[in-house]
Computed example of a mutant assay.
Amino acid sequence: MVIDRVIIIVLDSVGVGELPDAAAFGDAGSNTLGNIAARVNLKLPNMARLGLGNIIPLRGIAPVGSPTAAYGKMASKSAGKDTTSGHWELAGLILEKPFPLYPHGFPPEIIEPFERAIGRKVLGNKPASGTVIIEELGAEHMRTGYPIVYTSADSVFQIAAHEDVIPVEELYRYCKIARRLLTGEHAVGRVIARPFIGEPGHFIRTDRRQDFSLEPPRPTLLDAVVNAGLQVMAVGKIKDIFAGRGISRWIHTHDNMDGIDQTCNFMREGGRGLIFTNLVDFDMRYGHRNDVTGYAGALEAFDRRLPELIEALNEGDVLVITADHGCDPTTPSTDHSREYVPLLIYGDKIRKINIGVRPTFADLGATVAEMLDVPYDLAGESFARRLLK
């Protein structure tokens, strides 16, 4: 039985426990959702009814006898634990080689051509927290006009600039220059524009961030859906992650709540295809800042909005809730963590079964392709026949 439309909601960084190889990534003991629940009196009644507490033990969120959704978890086969490789794997593209990392900053063969191309020196050029580095170098940036370049434990080249010093469109131009330069052995996953406003001591990053991702080296589920004549609607940073490939329409969002609003708007339009949404606040605002209370609040805010998403479903729709990696705010690290991701699949035509542990995120891509009846020869093994009534 063919499904009309699949809505995938990625709860960015909401992992559910360390993968077997987590120690090799420095992530032994990481369990984003489980460790938050152990610290905070987490209330997620709507996801609990779907079967969230049936996936892993969660303090205060008991398993239910009759979940209203299919439930399980997925392991990653890709070589990294970053946003790009996680989303690409969800869409059927597994990376065997990790993106390059720069724990000591970028070498001269990257920085010098970049400075020549933009006609300015740069500040920073080191791994740093985005909020910390703008407080450290923001005043000097305003005095000199030099952009702040930094990286993290992820494969990213980030450029921060005050909107009154380097206008946002100019900052985007700098990012496009960096994207063209960062190829071959230096092909980082993402170049990220990080605009901010305010005065020294009171800088605030704005929501005009933009990611300039490496283009997927091979087709993905998104290409397969579009090539079959269906629509792919991208909400949040999905368009950036896939470098615009395989996307019919897209909208950037201000925060998680706006992401849910825009997803519901697309759902009300009807039609056949895929709606692919990333809710980034969990990761960007709370995981990387080790803000356990804020992360818990964001989870509860999503849970309160979940009935709206369910109510917006048509009879031939399927709602998928998952994640792309972990970012455990209870550990000393502020980086992503190598974790399983949850999988909840809801719809009128979905059997309420235990999916178990899938060996790769790509199994979801294969399953979505089969449900939508689109040709698919990418990574992953479909479990659609188990799911559909």
Rank of each mutant, 00 (worst) to 15 (best):
I3G: 08
I3A: 14
V14Y: 04
G15E: 03
D21H: 10
A24I: 08
F25Y: 15
F25L: 08
A28F: 11
S30L: 06
G34M: 09
N35W: 01
I36G: 03
R39G: 00
K43I: 06
P45A: 09
N46D: 09
L50C: 06
L50P: 02
G53F: 02
N54T: 06
G60K: 10
A62M: 14
G65E: 15
Y71D: 03
M74Y: 11
M74R: 13
A75T: 07
D82E: 13
D82L: 04
H87E: 09
A91Y: 13
E96K: 15
G105W: 03
P107E: 09
I110A: 09
P113T: 09
A117M: 13
A117P: 11
R120M: 12
V122C: 04
V122Q: 04
N125P: 02
P127W: 06
I134C: 07
G138Q: 02
T144V: 03
G145C: 12
Y146W: 14
I148M: 08
Y150T: 05
Y150C: 06
S152G: 05
A153Y: 12
F157P: 00
I159K: 05
I159A: 06
I166Q: 10
R173W: 13
R173P: 10
R180D: 15
T183P: 05
E185V: 14
H186N: 12
A187C: 10
V188G: 03
R190Y: 02
R190D: 03
G198S: 11
R205D: 03
T206I: 11
T206R: 07
R208M: 12
R218G: 13
T220I: 06
L221Q: 02
L222N: 11
V225Y: 02
V226L: 11
L230I: 03
L230P: 00
A234M: 13
A234F: 12
V235N: 08
G236E: 01
G236Q: 01
G244L: 11
G244W: 10
R245W: 13
I247M: 08
I247W: 08
W250A: 14
I251R: 15
T253K: 05
H254G: 03
M257D: 14
G259A: 11
I260C: 02
I260N: 02
D261H: 14
M267G: 08
G273S: 12
L274D: 09
F276M: 11
F276G: 01
T277H: 10
F282T: 04
D283P: 03
D283C: 01
R285T: 12
H288C: 01
R289K: 14
T293F: 13
A296D: 02
A296R: 07
G297W: 02
A298G: 10
L299W: 01
E300G: 08
E300W: 10
A301G: 12
F302H: 09
D303P: 04
R305P: 00
L306G: 03
L309H: 01
I310P: 04
E315F: 14
E315D: 15
G316N: 13
D317K: 07
V318W: 06
V320P: 02
A323K: 00
D328T: 07
P329A: 06
P329D: 04
T331Q: 15
T334Q: 13
R338G: 01
V341H: 01
Y346T: 00
G347D: 03
R351Y: 00
V357I: 15
T360M: 09
A362F: 07
A366P: 02
T367R: 05
E370M: 10
L372K: 08
D377I: 00
L378M: 11
R385P: 00
K389T: 12
